[in-house]
Simulated assay, not measured.
Amino acid sequence: MKFVLEVDLDDTASDEEAARELGRILRYWGGNLHHYALGSGAAAAVHDSGYREVGRWSTTPGAGG
């Protein structure tokens, strides 16, 4: 399985703020990982701390099938 996480932080005011926001997103997502079924084809939106949709994660079959 291949896991893809895409987050668009273009609307973030500065690189420092973008780094903090990405850290929050990764901590939240990682902490809630057990709530997701990560089988092939799973996907969901990713939200920032203001609950705005800023990206998406998904799973696809890996190179081996």
Results as ranks from 00 to 15, higher is better:
1 M>I: 03
1 M>H: 06
1 M>E: 06
2 K>L: 01
2 K>W: 00
2 K>P: 00
2 K>Q: 09
3 F>C: 00
4 V>T: 07
4 V>G: 00
5 L>E: 07
5 L>T: 02
5 L>P: 00
5 L>W: 04
6 E>H: 08
7 V>R: 09
7 V>F: 11
7 V>H: 05
7 V>K: 09
8 D>S: 11
8 D>H: 13
8 D>F: 04
9 L>F: 07
9 L>D: 03
9 L>T: 12
9 L>I: 11
9 L>H: 10
9 L>V: 08
11 D>G: 02
12 T>R: 12
12 T>E: 04
13 A>W: 05
13 A>M: 02
13 A>F: 07
13 A>G: 04
14 S>L: 03
14 S>T: 15
15 D>Q: 07
16 E>P: 00
16 E>W: 01
16 E>G: 05
17 E>N: 03
17 E>D: 12
18 A>R: 12
18 A>P: 06
18 A>W: 07
19 A>E: 11
19 A>I: 08
19 A>S: 10
19 A>N: 04
19 A>W: 00
20 R>F: 09
20 R>G: 07
21 E>Y: 02
21 E>H: 06
22 L>W: 07
22 L>G: 03
23 G>L: 05
23 G>F: 06
24 R>A: 08
24 R>Q: 04
24 R>W: 10
24 R>M: 02
24 R>C: 01
25 I>Q: 02
26 L>S: 05
26 L>I: 14
26 L>F: 03
26 L>T: 11
26 L>Y: 10
27 R>Q: 12
27 R>P: 00
29 W>G: 04
30 G>D: 03
30 G>C: 00
30 G>V: 05
31 G>D: 02
31 G>R: 14
32 N>R: 15
33 L>R: 15
33 L>C: 02
34 H>C: 04
34 H>T: 08
35 H>S: 08
36 Y>E: 13
37 A>E: 14
37 A>L: 10
37 A>H: 13
37 A>S: 12
38 L>H: 02
39 G>F: 00
39 G>H: 10
40 S>T: 15
40 S>N: 12
41 G>H: 10
41 G>A: 01
41 G>M: 01
41 G>F: 09
41 G>I: 04
42 A>R: 13
42 A>M: 11
44 A>T: 03
44 A>Y: 04
45 A>G: 10
45 A>I: 13
45 A>Q: 15
47 H>Y: 13
47 H>I: 09
47 H>V: 14
48 D>S: 12
48 D>I: 07
48 D>N: 15
49 S>Y: 01
50 G>W: 14
50 G>Q: 13
50 G>P: 05
51 Y>F: 13
51 Y>C: 13
51 Y>R: 15
52 R>W: 03
52 R>L: 06
52 R>C: 02
53 E>P: 15
53 E>M: 13
53 E>A: 14
54 V>Q: 11
54 V>S: 12
54 V>W: 11
54 V>G: 07
56 R>I: 10
56 R>D: 09
57 W>R: 06
58 S>P: 00
58 S>V: 02
59 T>S: 10
59 T>H: 07
59 T>A: 03
61 P>A: 05
61 P>C: 01
62 G>C: 09
62 G>L: 06
63 A>F: 09
63 A>E: 13
63 A>W: 03
65 G>R: 15
65 G>M: 08
65 G>E: 13
